[in-house]
Amino acid sequence: MAAEDDFRHESVQDRRSIVKYLHAITAGIEQGQIELGTADHMLALEPGGMIELEVQAKRKAGRVKFSIKLHWREDEEEPSTEVLEIKAGPRS
């Protein structure tokens, strides 16, 4: 993913309407693909492999923050030229 592959969305919701967002996200995770972005710039994320999950809650002076973060790695697009050249299984 290039550096300009960046998306941010902010809104105000209530408890009921927020669930719609969370459903959309969990459905995307289940399918292994989440599409998101704006009309002129869409991103397709493919969560897979090992995904780090960080759930954080914070309460300070009457303000509450609850965050869920996912991290994962995806393969670089250009494979390096110096990879192994193993074609068949090692033991024939």
Binding site: E82, L84, E85, I86, P90, R91
Partner: peptide
């Protein structure tokens, strides 16, 4: 390089 590494790997697993 890739070739040397492949050779070494094959020798090791053999």
């Amino acid at each position: 390089d890739g070739r040397a590494c492949t050779n070494a790997y094959m020798m090791v697993v053999e």
